[in-house]
Structure formats: C-alpha cells, structure tokens
C-alpha cells in the first residue's frame, strides 16, 4: 500500500478502502499540520483543522479526479480552511508562530549561540506572521511544502503570475523587516 501513488490511494479510498485512506493520511498528516501551524500560529488550532482537512478529503474523495494533482488539491482544502479560520478570528493580536516544541536549543550550540539562534528564528517567525494571509500562504507552500508555482496556483485558485507577485512581495517584505530588525538590534 505504501508504494502506491496518492492518486491510486484516493481511487481506492473513494471506493471504501479504509487502509488506503489511512495510508494516504499518514503520508500527508505531517506536512499538512506543519503548513497549518505556520498559517495559524497555533498548534492546537492546526491540529483541529488538520483533522478537518482530512475529513473533507474523505467526504469529497468521490469527486476527486486522479490527474496527479493530489498535493495541490489537499493544500487547497487546508489553505481554504486556514484562511477561513483567520478571517473568522479577525486577528487583532500577534500570532505566536512557534509550535511550542522548539524551545530546546539545537544540540551542539553553546548557550549564548543558542540564544542568538533562537532570537534569530523568532525574528524570522515574527516577520512571517506579519505578512498578509495570501502572501504568507504562498510563501509557506513554496519554502516549506516545496510546491511549484503551478501547484501553488492550483492550491490557491489563482494564476501562476499572481503566485509570482505574491512570493516577490512576501520576500521583499521579509527582507525589509529583517534588515530593519538587524539594524535595530
């Protein structure tokens, strides 16, 4: 079962094969969760929406067309849920982009370096969470989930040109924020 493609597993899952769905979910749960944490900033909400994402995947599996675009389709579901949650939440506060599992310094670093590394990571997280939702979504899908521009376009329901612009704006904003932070520190 693990050697099967996503499309093959979806076909079997849509026909009621529970093992196929389980394999598919176990294959994708970590990337989807990581994406949602980065989008929402809250591991608890991300876990909740991760389950919702796969619920929707299962309930709409009969409508899935096996054209090798499973990843885009899956991240479209997850992205829509995340943006809908963000809209509802009406963000008025800083999002903590940490998962709560990364407080421990990387092994091999002395405490001062670890502190500096931690501060640097926090600065980057802060810069990411200040991006507009769509820029953040495109950036996360590209940098962390390694989707191509075409796949991001499909996942977000926009054109490849729009993806280019979103990513360019996101990277420009990050550059601006991070260089400002560097000068201030």
């Amino acid at each position: 079962m693990t050697g099967m493609t996503d499309d093959q597993l979806m076909i079997r899952g849509a026909a009621g094969d529970e093992a196929a769905l389980r394999t598919l979910i176990e294959r994708w749960e970590k990337p989807v969760f990581a994406f949602l944490v980065r989008m929402l900033g809250s591991p608890e909400e991300a876990e909740d929406l991760c389950q919702d994402t796969f619920m929707r995947l299962i309930s709409s599996s009969g409508r899935y067309r096996p054209e090798g675009r499973f990843q885009s389709w899956l991240f479209r579901i997850a992205g829509n849920l995340a943006r809908s949650r963000l809209r509802r939440r009406k963000i008025l506060r800083w999002l903590p982009l940490t998962s709560g599992h990364h407080e421990t310094p990387a092994p091999g670093l002395d405490p001062l370096n670890a502190l500096a590394a931690g501060q640097e990571q926090e600065r980057v997280r802060a810069a990411i969470r200040q991006l507009p939702d769509r820029q953040r979504q495109a950036l996360i899908l590209k940098r962390y989930n390694e989707l191509s521009y075409q796949e991001i376009a499909e996942a977000m329901g926009i054109s490849v040109g729009s993806v280019q612009m979103l990513l360019h704006r996101a990277m420009s904003a990050l550059k601006r924020d991070l260089s400002r932070g560097r000068h201030e520190s």
Partner: peptide, 26 residues
C-alpha cells in the same frame, strides 16, 4: 540569504497521529 533564514526555522511537530481521532469522529 533569506532562504537560509527561513530554512533555519524548525518544522512544527505533529503531537499525535490524525487517523485514530479521525476514524473515531467519522
């Protein structure tokens, strides 16, 4: 350089597998 900074951020870890809870909920 920016890519390097972004890559340094650790991946969030899934606290528990999705399937058991999902199976129960379904």
């Amino acid at each position: 350089r920016l890519d390097g900074l972004l890559a340094d951020i650790d991946a969030p870890e899934l606290p528990r597998p999705v399937w058991p809870a999902l199976n129960g909920a379904l």
